[in-house]
């Protein structure tokens, strides 16, 4: 009888552990990748495009690769950088960006930025805009950007 109770208790513990694992991993992804200063430019109402900025810090021992950013504010969203060449500022679309272990990457005006094409202006009425960050390992999380 004692053995049977021990067996069931162990089984229960394993089931609970299994159920909580994906959630724990997601939390881990988020906590080891901290986003700060997330803002989206409040452009004039006649503007069709805007840009969003943030800082991402990777506190894990693993390099992470950001492969996509999406948001309900626009169908077309790309990661861009500005390349300075012969006095020209050239906007470049980049497919992914490495967030090295124990390092941070800053998206700021005139540098890396989230390029938001033909955005839905109804979002001007919202305090924040959600952006989903996707990584090469399949993990993702949502961060809210404030209009600024």
């Amino acid at each position: 009888m004692k053995r049977l109770i021990q067996y069931h208790l162990t089984l229960l513990l394993l089931i609970q552990l299994h159920m909580s694992l994906p959630h724990a991993m997601a939390q881990n992804n988020k906590t080891q990748l901290a986003i700060t200063n997330a803002w989206i430019r409040k452009v004039p109402t006649i503007s069709t495009h805007t840009a969003a900025y943030f800082q991402i810090k990777n506190t894990s021992n693993k390099n992470r690769i950001l492969v996509n950013i999406s948001s309900p504010i626009a169908a077309k969203i790309e990661i861009h950088t500005i390349e300075k060449k012969n006095g020209l500022s050239i906007m470049q679309h980049i497919d992914s960006i490495l967030i090295p272990s124990h390092s941070k990457v800053t998206f700021k005006p005139g540098g890396y930025h989230i390029m938001v094409f033909n955005f839905d202006q109804q979002w001007f009425d919202q305090k924040t805009v959600p952006f989903t960050f996707q990584f090469d390992d399949g993990s993702s999380f949502v961060e809210h950007f404030i209009w600024q």
């Binding site: 452009v43 004039p44 840009a51 861009h80 906007m91 930025h113 390029m115």
Partner: peptide, 10 residues
């Protein structure tokens, strides 16, 4: 130009 998303607004 007004469609400029990054540099010009900055």
């Amino acid at each position: 130009y007004t469609t400029c998303p990054d540099i010009c607004p900055m």
